[in-house]
Design a protein around this nucleic acid. Sequence first.
DNA 1: CATGGATGTAAGTATGTACTTACTTGCAAA
DNA 2: TTTGCAAGTAAGTACATACTTACATCCATG
Lengths: 197, 197
Amino acid sequence: MYLLANFDEADSTRATLMRSGLELLAEKGYKGATTREIAARAGVSEVTLFRQFGSKEALLQEAVQKLHPPVEQVLPQSTRNLEADLLRLTKHYVQMLEANQGLLVRLLPELARHPELRGAAGPAGFNRAISSVLEYLTDLQKAGLLRSDESPFQAAVALLGPLFARALLFGAMGIHPPFDLQAHVRGFLEGRQRGQR
Amino acid sequence: MYLLANFDEADSTRATLMRSGLELLAEKGYKGATTREIAARAGVSEVTLFRQFGSKEALLQEAVQKLHPPVEQVLPQSTRNLEADLLRLTKHYVQMLEANQGLLVRLLPELARHPELRGAAGPAGFNRAISSVLEYLTDLQKAGLLRSDESPFQAAVALLGPLFARALLFGAMGIHPPFDLQAHVRGFLEGRQRGQR
DNA sequence: CATGGATGTAAGTATGTACTTACTTGCAAA
DNA sequence: TTTGCAAGTAAGTACATACTTACATCCATG
């Protein structure tokens, strides 16, 4: 299974607790994730949880802040084969979204009330993903491969936004209408690409 | 203020309670919205809440099911001026999203666990919006104004998805980078439009 | 062997929450 | 005026939750 969170300390008590905490956060939300259940799922006693983290809030806060999305690993160096590049990138992004849909959808409302969670991994990788894509698109514009009358930010939203919406919304609705990723990338490139037509 | 929910019974005790319930649901989530606070905000006693609805769950369920998004009101009859049509439609959609961002983002995770909320107003208007847009786009395809090698569904996601993502994500992050709606619509039409080039 | 640190068990505290019961008050229609 | 309905007040119940305290156990390191 492909997970967003992989802590350095692989299977220490703390890491196990944080993983369980994130799982339950994804399933039942902040209030729904009880210390009892987190400890039980981690296979430790509830006292251990409090000895290690002091409070439920501290546990979840640390866990969320240690999320690190592996998006940049697949960010293509502008190979100038735009369609292939973007297809690989978006595929990876969709995988990430689907694997973490529950966590994302639970984190979103908490971010509004707990701004301290926004840093680092922030919105579960989206900002990092988007800023990587931003760089990539800016590079392309500079290289003259993409038209530059559109802000890279707007282009990134046009590329990733539909994938984000599809994953969250249809994930929540429990439906999965077909979506042609390749066609999406082509549609994105159409009109934006230069020197290739 | 532009609200998603407008109940028929304008200011009965029940309607006031449901409105307060939705407000608190948006602010604090299902568990965070306590019957005490809902009643207080509605200006009635807590007992009244239970006499009227029997349970917190019944209150919120009824309230959510009575949400009705006024999207179709602005759905354009294919006037053949695509850019103007879509601009009006997307503007309206963005307004709706911004006004209801809190509710939406709280409703999304509940929908996964409480499928009974999916019906009717469901995902706070998105499915209704998308199905209206679907009809509109299908019409355009039939009229030969839009290329038809792409499914209308996919086109609808490409059009509305970025707006959805932008509203939810950046709303949650508390940032508001500029976004040119007109450019977005143009980008959408580019390559999709026919007979106009 | 002895010490220390991380864990477990058992019990308890304080608080909050959904929901109930019993009795009272105001008000509008018969 | 009387009846009845919707609302309020006050108190309480049952349960869950975050968190604590006290004491026992394991186990690796010195």
